[in-house]
């Protein structure tokens, strides 16, 4: 967890609006490093610039000014484009719009085929990728017969087959139902814990960001908060001001403290919340 795998310095990005003739700034001076093996959540409301930031991590977009380095490679270096894309696997919101083939294993094979990987090696990679998202059983299925969560797991397997060092997921659960969301979060955490995959999760769901090692909150194209979930979420008022939620447990403790209680504010889940409350409530008074 010590080496920096992505270094972003003074990243600015703007796009030109054809109708008004104005340049619209989206990212305004982002400084951020992603460490090898960490699970980083980028939290922000719609239009905060978080998806634009994600697209800079594998050179779909390149900075208007500033620099993005992936394992030391400048994303603006067009000659290294595919080196970057192969290192940074990208998963998007809508699983339907990421799948190319109408058989699961053919779809997972798409990236290694593009990279010119030899046939035996493709086979190995496809099997390994499907295994690590728990979809081996479905390798001969047609994608449209699967549930949303299953489709999104196939999409993840599709980028894992490139053997990337970093997995970037841009709101991967926004279109899924609760069980689908759970499946994806479990798959991501497993990849991070068991295979040491560096994960960058772009989301507006606080309950997903809570599960990360580190959270970055972005608003209007700038980083507004950064730290462990335990450090970020107790700032309930600040987060609400940015149009974001906090876990109900954290909010409850925060509100009780506002009323003069003296509880540990760094609480995110129900178990620790209950323990903290019990310690402070005198039942047999």
């Amino acid at each position: 967890m010590h080496t920096d795998i992505i270094t972003i310095s003074q990243l600015c990005f703007q796009y030109h609006n054809e109708e008004t003739g104005l340049d619209i700034p989206v990212l305004q001076g982002i400084d951020l490093t992603v460490k090898k093996g960490e699970f980083l959540a980028v939290l922000g409301h719609n239009g905060s610039g978080k998806s634009t930031l994600a697209k800079h991590l594998n050179a779909i977009l390149t900075p208007t000014s500033g620099k993005v380095l992936v394992e030391g490679i400048d994303t603006a270096d067009e000659k290294r484009l595919y080196d970057i894309r192969q290192r940074v696997g990208m998963v998007f919101q809508n699983p339907d719009n990421q799948m190319v083939a109408n058989i699961v294993e053919e779809d997972v094979a798409f990236a290694p085929e593009n990279l010119g990987v030899p046939r035996d090696e493709i086979r190995k990679r496809v099997d390994a990728a499907l295994e690590s998202v728990g979809m081996t059983k479905f390798k001969q299925h047609a994608p449209h017969m699967l549930s949303g969560g299953q489709k999104q797991r196939i999409a993840i397997a599709g980028v894992l087959a490139m053997q990337p060092d970093i997995l970037v997921l841009d709101e991967p659960t926004a279109m899924l139902d609760p069980s689908g969301r759970k499946e994806i979060m479990q798959a991501i955490k497993r990849l991070n814990r068991e295979q040491g995959m560096t994960v960058v999760l772009i989301t507006h769901y606080m309950d997903e960001a809570v599960q990360a090692d580190r959270v970055v909150v972005i608003d209007h194209g700038t980083i507004r908060m950064e730290g462990t979930p335990q450090a970020v979420f107790p700032k309930v008022k600040e987060l609400k001001g940015l149009g974001l939620d906090t876990p109900q447990a954290t909010e409850l403790i925060y509100l009780l403290n506002q009323k003069g209680a003296n509880l540990n504010p760094e609480i995110l889940d129900s178990e620790t919340c209950v323990a903290e409350l019990l310690r402070n409530i005198e039942i047999n008074r």
Binding site: L277, I281, I283
Partner: peptide, 23 residues
Amino acid sequence: VPIREGIYTVEDALNELAPLLRQ
């Protein structure tokens, strides 16, 4: 802890719990 059943908003929980906490 003596609190009622069927609490489903943070406000309700706050109102139930605040009196139980001593400071």
